[in-house]
C-alpha cells in the first residue's frame, strides 16, 4: 500500500491530481471556446474525477470477485 521508505517526490503525490486538475480546467473552458469538439472534450475531461472515484470505489469489489 505504501510507496516505500524513501523520501517522497512531489510529483508522486501531486502528479496525478495535477493532471486531473489541468484536464478539468481545459474541459471547463473548451465547451465555451471550442465548439462541438470542445463540448465532447469537456464531457470527458470534466467527468474524469467522477470516473476516478467510481473506479476506486469498484476496485475492491472486482478484486473480491
Amino acid at each position: 500500500m505504501t510507496a516505500g521508505k524513501h523520501r517522497p517526490r512531489w510529483t508522486a503525490v501531486f502528479g496525478a491530481p495535477l493532471i486531473v486538475g489541468v484536464l478539468s480546467l481545459a474541459g471547463l473552458l473548451s465547451a465555451l471556446l471550442a465548439g462541438d469538439f470542445g463540448r465532447y472534450f469537456c464531457w470527458i475531461a470534466v467527468a474524469l474525477p467522477v470516473a476516478i472515484v467510481t473506479i476506486v470505489w469498484l476496485r475492491p469489489r472486482f478484486r473480491r470477485d
Binding site: M1, T2, P8, V13, A16, P17
Partner: peptide
C-alpha cells in the same frame, strides 16, 4: 495538507 497526509501512500489508496 494533502502532501503530509498522503505522501507515503500511492495515489487513490483507500485503506479500507
Amino acid at each position: 495538507l494533502y502532501w503530509p497526509f498522503t505522501r507515503r501512500l500511492r495515489f487513490a489508496t483507500i485503506r479500507d
